Simulated assay, not measured.
Amino acid sequence: MQEIADDFADLAAPQRLELLLEFSEGLPELPARYAGSLDTMEQVHECQSPIFLVVEVADEPADQPDDRAVHLFFSAPPEAPTTRGFAGILSEGLDGLTVAEVLAVPEDAPYRFSLGEAVSPLRLRGMVGMLSRIKRQVALKTRS
């Protein structure tokens, strides 16, 4: 996540929006098991656009629960590039990390992408909402 934040910080505000659009376009498609099943995903109500997410935590290595890999899946409409961009950042920055690494991400991480000049605070709160739901789902899935 820090590398992505550094990439944004190195750019002027207009170029940050272009990079955000690149993340939007790079958001992976939902796997077939979630396509058409938004009811199995959690909606992020802080976002202005309808976005849904689900977290999967790998079963292995079961002897070290905090070392299990986390995988993220998002459903975001193509006509919402900012929201999709935020989801793309979180997907690229967090997918594949361990439970411990995801839970260690600071709550204010979305504010570290130097996007305050490029998008509204309301939109940034949407990304904060995504991150908090990801971390909550990871915590819940590692307790069970």
Results as ranks from 00 to 15, higher is better:
Ile4Leu: 12
Ala5Asn: 05
Asp7Gln: 14
Asp10Val: 07
Leu11Asp: 07
Ala12Thr: 15
Ala13Arg: 10
Gln15Ser: 11
Arg16Leu: 10
Arg16Gln: 12
Leu17Thr: 11
Leu17Arg: 15
Glu18Phe: 05
Glu18Arg: 14
Phe23Asn: 03
Phe23Leu: 05
Ser24His: 08
Glu25Leu: 07
Pro28Gly: 08
Glu29Ser: 13
Leu30Gln: 02
Leu30Pro: 03
Pro31Thr: 10
Pro31Lys: 09
Arg33Ile: 10
Arg33Ser: 15
Arg33Leu: 12
Tyr34His: 10
Tyr34Phe: 14
Ala35Met: 14
Ala35Tyr: 14
Gly36Phe: 13
Ser37Ala: 11
Leu38Asn: 15
Thr40Ile: 05
Thr40Val: 10
Glu42Tyr: 01
Glu46Asn: 06
Ser49His: 13
Ser49Tyr: 14
Pro50Val: 03
Pro50Gln: 08
Ile51Gln: 00
Phe52Pro: 01
Leu53Trp: 11
Val54Leu: 08
Val55Arg: 06
Val55Gly: 09
Glu56Lys: 07
Glu56Asp: 15
Val57Ser: 05
Asp59Ile: 04
Asp59Lys: 12
Asp59Arg: 14
Pro61Gly: 04
Ala62Met: 06
Ala62Ser: 13
Asp63Cys: 04
Asp63Asn: 09
Asp63Phe: 08
Gln64Tyr: 11
Gln64Ala: 07
Pro65His: 10
Asp66Asn: 09
Asp67Val: 03
Arg68Trp: 07
Arg68Cys: 06
Arg68Thr: 02
Ala69Lys: 14
Ala69Pro: 10
Ala69Gln: 13
Leu72Gly: 00
Ala76Ile: 02
Ala76Trp: 00
Pro77Asn: 09
Pro77Thr: 08
Pro77Glu: 11
Pro78Phe: 09
Pro78Gln: 12
Pro78Lys: 13
Glu79Gln: 14
Ala80Arg: 04
Pro81Met: 10
Pro81Asn: 11
Pro81Asp: 09
Pro81Phe: 10
Thr82Ala: 10
Thr83Trp: 05
Arg84His: 03
Gly85Leu: 01
Ala87Ser: 07
Gly88Ser: 02
Gly88Trp: 01
Gly88Val: 02
Ile89Cys: 01
Leu90Ser: 02
Leu90Val: 09
Leu94Met: 07
Leu94Cys: 04
Gly96Phe: 00
Gly96Gln: 12
Gly96Tyr: 03
Leu97His: 13
Leu97Asn: 08
Leu97Arg: 11
Thr98Arg: 15
Thr98Lys: 11
Ala100Thr: 06
Ala100His: 03
Glu101Thr: 02
Glu101Arg: 06
Glu101Gln: 15
Glu101Asn: 01
Ala104Val: 10
Pro106Tyr: 06
Pro106Cys: 04
Glu107Gly: 12
Glu107Met: 06
Glu107Val: 11
Asp108Pro: 02
Ala109Gly: 06
Pro110Gln: 04
Tyr111Asp: 12
Tyr111Arg: 10
Arg112Ser: 14
Phe113Lys: 03
Ser114Val: 00
Ala118Glu: 09
Ser120Ile: 02
Arg123Trp: 04
Arg123Ile: 08
Leu124Thr: 10
Arg125Gly: 02
Arg125Ala: 01
Gly126Tyr: 00
Gly126Trp: 06
Met127Val: 01
Met127Phe: 06
Gly129Gln: 06
Met130Thr: 11
Leu131His: 04
Leu131Asp: 00
Ser132Asn: 14
Arg133Lys: 12
Arg136Lys: 11
Gln137Ile: 06
Val138Cys: 13
Ala139Phe: 08
Lys141Gln: 15
Ser144Glu: 14
